[in-house]
């Protein structure tokens, strides 16, 4: 199955923080809105981003009404909606706005699980990266919840 994703800044930053940007190669197409790229660049582009294969796309974020979200999140939602791609975000409010707009939405932990599901990572490496995501990045997620996600890998 062909898999296209549009990402906001969160998963790109969080997966870069644990040297896991290569997991985006599990997608056939990765779309990065220009607004998102500018946000990332403003904070200092993470190592490995230049090696990543992605399409820089323009987006009209003004068409997305969720004003509590930042411009990058709205741009990623607009692109995902227009191109029928999966939205990648680690922001709970953006996730809810996307679900309300009938967009399939997942986060960094989902990208790691996808890497495991598609054979890019073995179980031990996937678990180790999930724990690193919780301990070593700016993503806030409760430890017990991550451990629950890791146990789900064994239930496959």
């Amino acid at each position: 199955m062909t898999l296209a994703a549009a990402s906001d800044a969160g998963p790109l930053i969080h997966l870069a923080e644990i040297d896991s940007l290569e997991l985006f190669s599990t997608f056939d197409t990765l779309l990065v809105p220009e607004t998102v790229y500018e946000e990332i660049e403003a904070g200092g582009a993470p190592d490995g981003l230049s090696d990543l294969s992605y399409e820089l796309v323009e987006a009209d974020e003004s068409r997305v009404g969720a004003e509590e979200l930042d411009a990058g999140e709205r741009a990623a939602i607009a692109v995902a909606k227009e191109l029928e791609a999966v939205l990648l975000t680690d922001d709970l409010a953006a996730r809810e706005a996307a679900s309300d707009a009938d967009i399939e939405v997942h986060g960094s932990l989902g990208v790691i699980a996808l890497g495991y599901g598609r054979g890019l990572l073995d179980r031990s490496e996937a678990a180790s990266r999930m724990r690193a995501l919780q301990r070593e990045t700016s993503l806030f997620v409760t430890e017990a919840v991550v451990e629950r996600g890791i146990r789900m890998l064994d239930e496959q």
Partner: peptide, 20 residues
Amino acid sequence: ERAERERDVVEEDVDWGLNA
């Protein structure tokens, strides 16, 4: 409540990742 929301999100994500 925050942990419950996170649990739902993580379960949804891992389930998708394993089956996409």
